[in-house]
């Protein structure tokens, strides 16, 4: 494995009562690369995500995040909001969690909360309308505008997020995560429910994020065309353990992977075998 890993997960285990959702899992995500975490339903992928992003406290194991400047953070020692604030790990959710009653623009403004809190002097400067706050606010709106443009939603900036079509909501959630300026972006099934064209646009967006922002991406995905097209590295899980890892081509031909998918879902297995060729 390459030494330049932004995230290394070591011997991660997560138990719920008697159920072992993740069992002694180790893998890494390389810097400025797209790593995909795949596996049949119930393999424990989202649980891994929830551990990395601080929503669950893992039973055992360690997760180390290494920033560009060399300082490292043990993620299992931080909880909920600090993962995003201090470790700069952002995430999206399998069942989109936007702020439906706020506009698309407001959603992106909320994402810049911590930066804006500092700029507003913990509200006091903002309350008196200090010039420095006004500058910061304008910069935040500009950043939001840039992202709205990149996801093609500039004309819907002032619409309630809950009113946007499904595909737009997915992209808005990614943009919102990006507005926290993360080092690692974790996407939980970003292509779920998208049609072929929207999936292609999503792939393009993720590749451009990697290229332009240099953000490392970790994604869970069932849509194999997306996985095969954009991933640099694929980790395959089944029943809470890692069964294979490697390049998309390598994984695709791995008999254990095919068996796991065949055992779980024939269609998906066929999709694995056919896609990307």
């Amino acid at each position: 494995m390459s030494a330049d890993q932004i995230l290394s997960v070591d011997h991660l285990s997560m138990r719920f009562g008697g159920i072992v959702a993740v069992n002694d899992l180790s893998f890494g995500a390389e810097r400025r690369k797209i790593t995909a975490l795949i596996g049949p339903n119930g393999a424990g992928k989202t649980t891994v995500f929830n551990c990395i992003t601080g929503f669950y406290k893992p039973t055992s194991g360690s997760m180390r995040l290494a920033h560009d400047d060399g300082h490292t953070i043990q993620l299992e020692r931080l909880n909920d909001f600090r993962i995003s604030k201090q470790a700069k790990v952002a995430r999206t959710f399998q069942n989109i969690r936007l702020f439906p009653g706020m506009t698309a623009l407001e959603n992106l403004m909320v994402a810049q909360h911590n930066a804006l809190m500092r700029a507003s002097g913990l509200t006091l400067l903002g309350l008196i309308g200090a010039p420095s706050w006004r500058v910061a606010e304008k910069a935040a709106i500009d950043l939001a505008r840039t992202w709205l443009e990149r996801i093609g939603l500039l004309d819907r900036a002032d619409d309630a997020a809950g009113n946007l079509p499904y595909g737009d909501q997915r992209r808005l959630e990614i943009a919102r995560a990006m507005c926290t300026e993360p080092a690692l972006l974790c996407l939980d099934e970003p292509a779920a429910g998208l049609n072929a064209r929207e999936s292609a646009a999503l792939s393009e967006l993720l590749l451009s994020i990697r290229a332009n922002q240099g953000t490392s991406i970790l994604l869970i995905e069932h849509d194999m065309s997306v996985v095969m097209e954009i991933s640099d590295h694929v980790v395959v899980m089944d029943y809470g353990v890692k069964i294979a890892e490697g390049t998309p081509q390598h994984v695709r031909d791995d008999p254990r992977v095919i068996a796991a998918y065949l055992g779980a879902d024939e269609e998906e297995a066929i999709a694995v075998m056919e896609s990307g060729t």
Partner: peptide, 21 residues
């Protein structure tokens, strides 16, 4: 201000708030 938006965001979805730091 960010604090007020955070209040409203909290009303909309607490989990998402935490994910945004």
């Amino acid at each position: 201000l960010p604090i007020g938006r955070a209040w409203e965001a909290l009303r909309e979805d607490e989990v998402a708030c935490r994910a945004l730091g």
